[in-house]
Simulated scan of single mutants.
Amino acid sequence: MPQHTPDHPTRQILTLDTGVDAVEPGPDQRWSTWPSIAKGQRGPHPHPDWVVTAAAALDTELGVLKTGKEADVFLVERAVPDDPDRAVLLAAKRYRDTDHRQFHRAGTYTEGRRERRSRDQRATQDRHSAWGRSVRATQWADAEFATLCALWEAGAPVPYPVQIDGTELLLEFVGHVDDAGAAVAAPRLAQTRPDTDLLADWFEQVRSAMGVLARLGWAHGDLSPYNVLADGERLVVIDLPQVVDLVANPFGAELLHRDCRNMGAWFAARGLEVDVDALFAEVFAQAW
Rank of each mutant, 00 (worst) to 15 (best):
G19I: 00
A143I: 11
N249Q: 01
D7C: 07
A180S: 03
H176L: 06
G155T: 02
L189H: 06
G26N: 02
G26A: 03
G40N: 07
D59A: 06
T98C: 10
I238A: 05
G232A: 12
A281K: 12
L256Y: 02
A281C: 04
D7Q: 07
G43M: 01
P48E: 13
M210T: 13
P46H: 10
F203C: 00
V243P: 00
V212E: 06
S118E: 15
G107A: 10
V80M: 10
T196A: 15
D7G: 07
S36G: 14
Q242I: 04
T60H: 11
L58F: 15
K66Q: 06
A123T: 01
T60G: 05
D21S: 08
L170W: 05
D82S: 12
L223Q: 04
R78C: 05
L62Y: 03
V177S: 07
D245T: 04
L90Y: 14
T192R: 00
R94Y: 11
T138G: 03
R188W: 14
G132I: 05
Q102N: 14
G132S: 01
L148K: 02
A55Y: 14
V274K: 02
F145L: 00
P84G: 07
F267L: 03
D222F: 10
A92R: 09
M210W: 08
V51P: 13
H128W: 13
A55N: 08
D120V: 01
C149I: 11
S208E: 11
V73Q: 07
I37V: 15
H47T: 11
R11Q: 14
G107F: 05
I238V: 15
I37A: 14
L240A: 06
P161V: 00
E273D: 14
A146S: 11
Q41E: 10
A269Q: 14
E153H: 14
A214T: 05
R258G: 09
G211L: 13
P46A: 06
H104R: 11
G107C: 09
L90D: 06
D83N: 11
L235G: 05
T5G: 15
S224V: 05
F203A: 03
A54P: 09
R117M: 09
A214E: 08
L89A: 13
E254V: 04
Q163E: 09
W288L: 13
A182Y: 08
R101D: 07
V174M: 00
Q139N: 12
E115Y: 12
P241C: 10
H100C: 05
L75A: 02
A38C: 07
A87V: 02
R234I: 02
M1N: 14
C260M: 15
V51Q: 15
W266Y: 05
A182D: 09
Q242H: 01
E77Y: 04
R116Y: 10
F103H: 07
L279H: 12
K66F: 10
D126K: 01
A156F: 13
D28H: 01
K69R: 09
V52F: 08
A287Q: 08
L272H: 14
P2K: 08
S36R: 12
M263W: 08
P46F: 10
R270T: 14
T196R: 15
L213G: 09
A200S: 06
L246A: 06
T192H: 00
V276G: 15
A230W: 07
V76A: 07
A106M: 12
P250D: 14
I238Q: 02
